[in-house]
Amino acid sequence: MNILTKMSGLDNLTNNEAVLVKYILSNSKEIINKKPSEIANAAFVSVATIYRLVNKLGLSGIGELKIELASTFRTIEKETEIDYDYPILESDTPFQIMQNLSKIYNYTIDETVAFSDPEELVKVGKRLLEAKVIDVYTASANLFFAQNFKFQMQEIGVLVNVPEEDYVQRLSAANSDKEHVAIVVSYGGRGQTTKEVVKILRDNEVDIVLITSMQENPLIKYAKHKLYLASAENHYNKVSSFSTRLSLLSVFDLLYSIYFNHDYEKNLQYKISNYQKMNKELI
């Protein structure tokens, strides 16, 4: 049952809760990008009414309500759109392939944005800024995106640790403490090493930022913060991870940009100054 259907079937609502439900059902897409106070003002109810409704829906917060709404829209719209798993056909011309991939990329970015909780992004950005050490745990092809994030952060003088081998990942987790923050990339929580790493991080009381899909992931219970990827692709049965790769890249770029933006002028000057130093060495 999607969240809109569940909301429509609620009973024992107060008058204000009923007004809020009616407003959400009529303006559900706009809700995703509004703050709680903006929703309350538009619906002429209190912010407390919003949280009471969220509780009656069995959700943990407004961020989860927005994610549920975004997931519902994707499910409804996906059926009439391009196949994420098989966006190219044997009969397609090169130009048709390019058009189909363009659709996949556009939908992926829209979905990634829709799954983003503005309040959670603020919290994650704050935690990254507070951390003395940022560690990124991932595997396979996703390591390229983690390494790119490491490179971006190094350009502004922030060192990021990206352990690659299984043993080194577990060792890095074992060496972590409360001054570390761990970014863990796991689409569905299937990797054995990732499971072991997350448990070690939990035991060491390290805050975990989990980048995951909307699909069921057993690692969610260990994460303090969750960022969601576009989740329309099948994990195995597909031509390639066109959507997931782009979504992960956009999330890493977002984290870098949030960090950069906290001290914009300082980071910009640091980056430019270092490039000037390097160019002098080449002359």
Score class of each variant (00 low, 15 high):
residue 126 K to R: 12
residue 14 T to C: 06
residue 238 K to S: 08
residue 156 I to P: 05
residue 270 Y to V: 11
residue 152 Q to T: 01
residue 66 K to N: 09
residue 279 N to S: 14
residue 240 S to R: 08
residue 193 T to S: 03
residue 175 N to L: 05
residue 21 V to L: 06
residue 170 R to W: 00
residue 100 N to W: 07
residue 245 R to W: 08
residue 147 Q to M: 14
residue 275 Y to Q: 15
residue 182 A to E: 04
residue 30 E to W: 01
residue 121 L to P: 02
residue 15 N to H: 07
residue 281 E to D: 13
residue 173 A to L: 05
residue 188 G to V: 04
residue 121 L to K: 08
residue 219 L to P: 10
residue 192 Q to F: 02
residue 194 T to D: 06
residue 17 E to H: 11
residue 220 I to T: 14
residue 238 K to F: 03
residue 145 F to I: 12
residue 237 N to R: 07
residue 71 S to H: 11
residue 242 F to N: 02
residue 186 S to T: 02
residue 228 Y to S: 06
residue 246 L to W: 01
residue 144 F to G: 10
residue 24 I to A: 13
residue 225 H to D: 13
residue 220 I to L: 15
residue 114 A to L: 09
residue 112 T to I: 02
residue 250 S to G: 05
residue 66 K to C: 07
residue 7 M to F: 04
residue 11 D to T: 12
residue 120 E to Y: 00
residue 115 F to A: 04
residue 254 L to I: 05
residue 147 Q to V: 04
residue 163 P to S: 04
residue 235 H to D: 09
residue 83 D to K: 00
residue 149 F to H: 03
residue 53 L to G: 04
residue 222 Y to T: 10
residue 249 L to F: 07
residue 46 S to R: 02
residue 19 V to Y: 09
residue 198 V to H: 02
residue 131 A to C: 07
residue 158 V to K: 13
residue 24 I to Y: 05
residue 106 N to V: 07
residue 238 K to L: 11
residue 200 I to F: 07
residue 64 E to P: 14
residue 146 A to Y: 12
residue 223 A to K: 10
residue 34 K to R: 05
residue 34 K to Q: 09
residue 271 K to W: 13
residue 201 L to K: 05
residue 156 I to D: 06
residue 11 D to H: 11
residue 165 E to G: 03
residue 186 S to A: 04
residue 158 V to Y: 09
residue 214 M to Y: 01
residue 165 E to Y: 00
residue 231 S to C: 07
residue 162 V to L: 00
residue 142 N to C: 12
residue 243 S to F: 03
residue 271 K to I: 07
residue 124 V to F: 03
residue 24 I to W: 11
residue 236 Y to T: 10
residue 264 Y to V: 11
residue 141 A to H: 15
residue 266 K to S: 14
residue 231 S to N: 09
residue 104 I to D: 06
residue 27 N to A: 09
residue 61 G to F: 09
residue 236 Y to V: 09
residue 244 T to Q: 06
residue 127 R to L: 06
residue 95 F to M: 11
residue 77 E to T: 12
residue 25 L to E: 05
residue 168 V to P: 00
residue 278 M to Y: 15
residue 251 V to K: 05
residue 162 V to D: 03
residue 170 R to M: 10
residue 201 L to V: 02
residue 174 A to I: 00
residue 139 A to S: 15
residue 62 I to V: 15
residue 15 N to R: 13
residue 82 I to V: 09
residue 278 M to K: 15
residue 152 Q to W: 14
residue 232 A to G: 11
residue 252 F to C: 07
residue 125 G to S: 12
residue 47 V to G: 05
residue 4 L to I: 08
residue 8 S to W: 03
residue 216 E to H: 15
residue 277 K to W: 01
residue 171 L to Q: 02
residue 109 I to D: 07
residue 251 V to R: 03
residue 127 R to Q: 06
residue 143 L to V: 04
residue 25 L to P: 13
residue 283 I to E: 15
residue 212 T to F: 08
residue 178 K to C: 00
residue 138 T to S: 14
residue 211 I to S: 10
residue 42 A to Y: 00
residue 83 D to S: 02
residue 275 Y to R: 15
residue 16 N to S: 15
residue 262 H to C: 10
